[in-house]
């Protein structure tokens, strides 16, 4: 038994190595996804489960297939959903941009820090992951609330005489998303900048490029893969973010994750909730495919 296994490994180890994550994705991603797709084309029922079956066996063989596209039509017709998708994309885009603007100089500074300081800074970037995400968002509520720390300080300093509205606003959502996803921007940027050859910058300077020009002609293009990876890692989860807009945004901020949650939990409309999820995935496929395309171009270069 042992020898055949070994021979199998030797001959097919590449296939086996690929097969394991493939099976993982099949079981834990593709299957649930198909269930969601199935529910999204069902009809909402007051029953358990609260949706109609895809295959109706009541008339015997062959079963009738019931596909109901009304949920998708509903998403299209009710302007709330499109508005919310657009609002989500806008919030995610601005947050991604903010993360990039903050994260890029941070990653650069970390890379250029000599000695062990670099690893201390890198550790600090990753440190928030050691506590619960939910706890950290609650902490922001405490900081941003009317009677929260920031308002207390502002009043104590005499800058304002009554609390400024910080919590339950777009501002709070941006703070939350940027704070939460900043490490996902910094880490890929750090990884690519770490490999950047400093002599390239010197060569640019030597050939007459002033620092700004050297940055735009050498550093920026060479760190572009890190920028793309970081933006994707922030943009995709931020678009579907639920906890941050729910806790920090209150009723003022429209985000698709919140809609999805309320369709599912409050309205018990599983089919519409599923349709929202599937539509979200399709929306997010666009930047993913774009990234994939650029990456394969990079390989061909």
């Amino acid at each position: 038994m042992f020898v055949p296994f070994r021979a199998l490994m030797q001959q097919h180890w590449k296939a086996i190595v690929v097969l394991i994550p493939f099976l993982w994705l099949l079981v834990f991603f593709l299957t649930p996804f198909f269930i969601v797709v199935k529910i999204s084309v069902a009809e909402s029922l007051i029953a358990s489960p609260p949706f109609s079956r895809l295959l109706d066996w009541s008339n015997g063989w062959p079963p009738t297939i019931a596909i109901n596209l009304e949920n998708y039509a509903y998403l299209w017709e009710d302007s709330l959903y499109i508005k919310t998708y657009l609002s989500s994309l806008k919030i995610a885009s601005i947050s991604t941009l903010l993360c990039l603007l903050i994260g890029y100089p941070m990653a650069y500074a970390i890379v250029r820090t000599p000695g062990t300081g670099k690893f201390v800074l890198l550790l600090l970037v990753m440190l928030p992951f050691w506590t619960s995400f939910l706890l950290r968002v609650y902490a922001w509520m405490g900081l941003l609330a009317d009677q929260g720390t920031i308002n207390d300080i502002l009043i104590w300093l005499g800058l304002v005489d009554k609390p400024v509205r910080l919590l339950y606003s777009h501002f709070a959502v941006y703070v939350g998303i940027v704070y939460t996803y900043l490490p996902f921007m910094i880490l890929p940027l750090y990884a690519i900048m770490e490999r950047l050859d400093h002599s390239l910058n010197e060569a640019a300077a030597d050939l007459g490029a002033k620092p700004v020009s050297a940055f735009f002609t050498v550093t920026l293009p060479l760190t572009m893969p890190g920028i793309l990876a970081g933006c994707l890692l922030v943009f995709i989860p931020a678009t579907g973010e639920f906890v941050i807009p729910d806790l920090l945004g209150g009723g003022n901020v429209l985000m698709i994750g919140k809609i999805l949650s309320s369709e599912f939990n409050a309205n018990h409309d599983w089919p519409v909730a599923s349709a929202v999820a599937v539509a979200l995935l399709l929306v997010l496929m666009v930047p993913m495919l774009f990234y994939h395309r650029i990456q394969s171009m990079d390989v061909n270069r």
Binding site: E202, A204, L207, G208
Partner: peptide, 29 residues
């Protein structure tokens, strides 16, 4: 500063810009 000196350097590692063609590398200065 280096970018204003009448001096050019050939680096030990060559420091060619990996994202530019030969032509663009040479044209850079």
């Amino acid at each position: 500063p280096p970018y204003s000196r009448p001096v050019n350097m050939m680096f030990q590692s060559y420091a060619l810009f990996p994202h530019m063609s030969v032509e663009k590398n040479v044209a850079y200065g």
